[in-house]
């Protein structure tokens, strides 16, 4: 306990986090439709960021092809809801299942590779899946297709109602991703993952199954990315290869978010997503400059504190805001 007097900041941050969660749970009753749309995007990106952080920050799987599963989720939603005429609410969990199924062969391919080769390999696999999606004529081929009005109506006949419904779906997905991943990190698996993050060889010789945990993390992230893809499709009301499988939107921005917020920490992706949206919303009128600011910020973070903004803040605090370690509960 190096800073016992600062514990109140941690409690304050926890209270703020809780308040934010409560406000977000009832946001459609408080905010305008435009803000709800932005918050929906926020929640989708938060879900993707949590997953990329788990992979790259803990399991050392630095994939730049995770947008493939977002796209697969998007196309699966369209397939089930618009082509197979499955109940649209049922199509959402089914898209998670499809992403999981696609993850199995992808894993077999890219797990043969490590480090930079894995990064390139995952990208190639993602591009291949995107090109394959562009060949599906029922899905509009290379130019994509809009969700039929009948499906869209299923989420609300009026626009405001529909925005609220889709928002709540996005909220449920992000909450599920956050809580489930938090529980994972508090389990023995999370203990092993944290050890792996800090020293792979050291983790191996104390019995941490490095391969097993990598497989688990990869298969863990795929369905959540599929869910995010389904939510994004509901919001955009269409699928198309370049948008649904956008490497910029679902991988590059996500890497910025996680690196800026703090890779290998639970708080990092949350902070990073908030910072990303603040920059995007308040600095987007200066055009391309907001990308430059994003780039400079992430380079500065890597040089000054590789553990990101959260790493900077964490140095001053005596405890994590979202505690993962269970030691206080299990000791004696």
């Amino acid at each position: 306990m190096q800073h016992p007097n600062r514990l109140w900041i941690v409690y304050l941050a926890r209270a703020a986090l809780f308040a934010a969660a409560v406000v977000m749970a009832v946001a459609p009753m408080l905010l305008a439709t435009r803000d709800i749309a932005i918050l929906t995007e926020f929640l989708s990106l938060l879900t993707i960021a949590i997953m990329w952080n788990l992979l790259a920050g803990y399991a050392d799987i630095v994939s730049v092809g995770q947008h493939a599963f977002v796209g697969v989720g998007a196309y699966a939603l369209f397939g089930f809801a618009a082509i197979a005429h499955v109940d649209p609410y049922l199509a959402i969990p089914l898209s998670a299942l499809v992403a999981l199924v696609v993850a199995l062969p992808v894993m077999v391919i890219i797990f043969r590779l490590r480090t930079a080769y894995l990064a390139v390999g995952s990208w190639v696999v993602a591009e291949t899946i995107m090109l394959a999606a562009g060949k599906l004529s029922a899905f509009g081929g290379g130019s994509g297709i809009s969700l039929p009005v009948s499906v869209v109506r299923g989420f609300g006949s009026r626009v405001t109602e529909r925005y609220a419904t889709i928002y709540w779906i996005a909220f449920a997905v992000a909450a599920l991703a956050l809580v489930a991943t938090w529980l994972l990190m508090r389990s023995r698996i999370g203990l092993g993952l944290t050890a792996m993050r800090d020293n792979e060889e050291g983790a191996g010789v104390v019995g941490v199954n490095l391969i097993g945990l990598r497989v688990l993390c990869f298969l863990w992230t795929a369905p959540f990315l599929g869910l995010a893809g389904a939510v994004i499709t509901l919001q955009k009301l269409r699928v198309s290869p370049p948008a649904s499988f956008s490497i910029i939107d679902w991988t590059v921005y996500v890497i910025f978010i996680v690196v800026i917020g703090g890779i290998g920490s639970f708080e990092g992706p949350i902070i990073g997503t908030v910072v990303f949206f603040l920059i995007r919303e308040y600095l987007s009128e200066i055009g391309v400059w907001h990308f430059i600011i994003l780039g400079v910020l992430s380079i500065a973070v890597v040089l000054i504190e590789p553990r990101g903004l959260w790493g900077l803040v964490r140095r001053l605090l005596p405890a994590d805001v979202i505690p993962i370690s269970r030691r206080r509960r299990v000791r004696r």
Binding site: R188, G192, A195, D198, N199, G207, S325, R326
Partner: peptide, 25 residues
């Protein structure tokens, strides 16, 4: 080869959980 970001206790706990296969308690 310490797990630098974890407490000393959690370092050893990891070994007891994964290496010895013990329950958390």
């Amino acid at each position: 080869k310490p797990f630098t970001g974890m407490t000393v206790f959690d370092n050893v706990l990891t070994a007891a959980v994964h290496g010895a296969g013990l329950s958390f308690r």
